[in-house]
Amino acid sequence: MGPVRRSFSASCSRPVRKAPLSPARTTRCRPRITLHCQIDAEGTCLVPGRMLAEITKLLPPGLVTLSTAGHRFVICCGDAVYSLPLLPLADYPATASPEAEHQSALAAGAFAAAVGRVAVSAARDDVVPALAGINLSFSGDAVELASTDRYRLGIARVGLTEQVDPFEVLVPAKALGELTRPFAGDGGRLLLSLTAETLHLRNLTRSAWIRTLTGPYLPYRRIVPDHTPISATVDRVALRDVVRRLSVVAAGLTPIWLVYGVGSLRVRAGSDDDASGAETLAGTVTGAPLTVAFTAQLLLDAINSFDSPQLITAYTGAWKPAVLTGANGNGEPNGDYLHVLTPRLLPLE
């Protein structure tokens, strides 16, 4: 019930729009799950979804029996017995989907991981709906995922199981992230189908629909610098821990400064008039010395979006966007994901 419960409309006053049989037109995502069970009599029921989710979450361990009695839906588990009112099936919106315009397939785990990384860069509000979305650009044997809130940009690439004609779709980042995690847990292939207003995700036991956002998406590739003569490779976990510790004295908009020198990275925050801190990390630095400032939380989010042993940070200059990529233990870059982060435009200290 967990993935289904998250799709219920909290703002809709009609009970039928909060039921788990099928989605309301106002919802952005519509999950459907198939469970293996013993069926004594076939039928379809429509019940209050949020209440059903709360009940099933609290049931004791053991087999669950579902049945109807008159106009009630009965849930039995051990000594626990609950009943809910049945809602009229005829009042529920139709669920038939039009024929798909585009289809593709890919590894569910790899797609969910890419969505999780890219979603870090999506806007947290709907003031500009497109900025709260993830753009999926399909072409050839891969799909490119991108999101930006104007301060940062995430781009990931996932291979497809077969060649497809080029097409794009923009979907809400939060809904896509919530729905892809259960598919990743299932493993195997994930099938994607696109209609005029809906992206359909499915495997052998689970289905979900997401309402798309209006496009086109902004030309995000122009944000990525073409040439970055200054770069540094450092241990990602060590940098994350240093930034996390220094965030104590870099609350709010107080910047964290990265000072790149010969063979080292000095990380500092705060000022002489207030609390301050600094630590030094070993690293491989190429290019001219550089001092750059970032907002602590945005920098920490960027570092946490990677899972590689090392992190490469590349720059054109102190006030130009920084390009972060992952690297293996030997310092070799991983080109499947990059994160572009805008530095703070502050006078160099």
Rank of each mutant, 00 (worst) to 15 (best):
V169S: 05
G277L: 06
V259L: 08
V243R: 04
A208N: 02
F167D: 05
V234I: 15
D273G: 04
P219K: 09
A173I: 07
G263T: 02
R244Y: 07
F167M: 03
D149I: 09
G252T: 07
V224Q: 09
L160F: 05
L145E: 05
T228E: 08
L253M: 11
R222P: 00
I256C: 04
L239F: 14
V237A: 15
G154N: 11
R181V: 13
R211G: 11
E168P: 01
D165N: 07
R211Q: 12
P216I: 12
I256D: 02
A275G: 08
S193T: 06
R206M: 14
T161H: 09
P219A: 13
V249E: 05
A238K: 14
S207T: 10
L192G: 03
A282T: 06
G185D: 11
Y217L: 08
S271K: 11
A184M: 05
L246Q: 04
L153N: 13
R240N: 12
V143A: 08
R206A: 11
G187W: 05
R240K: 13
A156N: 04
L281K: 00
R189M: 09
T195W: 03
V234L: 15
F167L: 00
A173W: 02
L213C: 08
F167N: 05
R221S: 13
L265Q: 02
A173S: 14
S264H: 12
V171C: 06
G188E: 07
V259T: 14
V267W: 00
E197H: 12
L199S: 10
G261H: 03
N203T: 10
R152S: 15
T148C: 07
R150I: 10
G261S: 04
W209D: 12
R244M: 10
L246A: 04
E144S: 12
L258K: 01
I155M: 07
G159L: 03
A251D: 13
A156H: 01
S264Y: 04
G177H: 00
G185V: 00
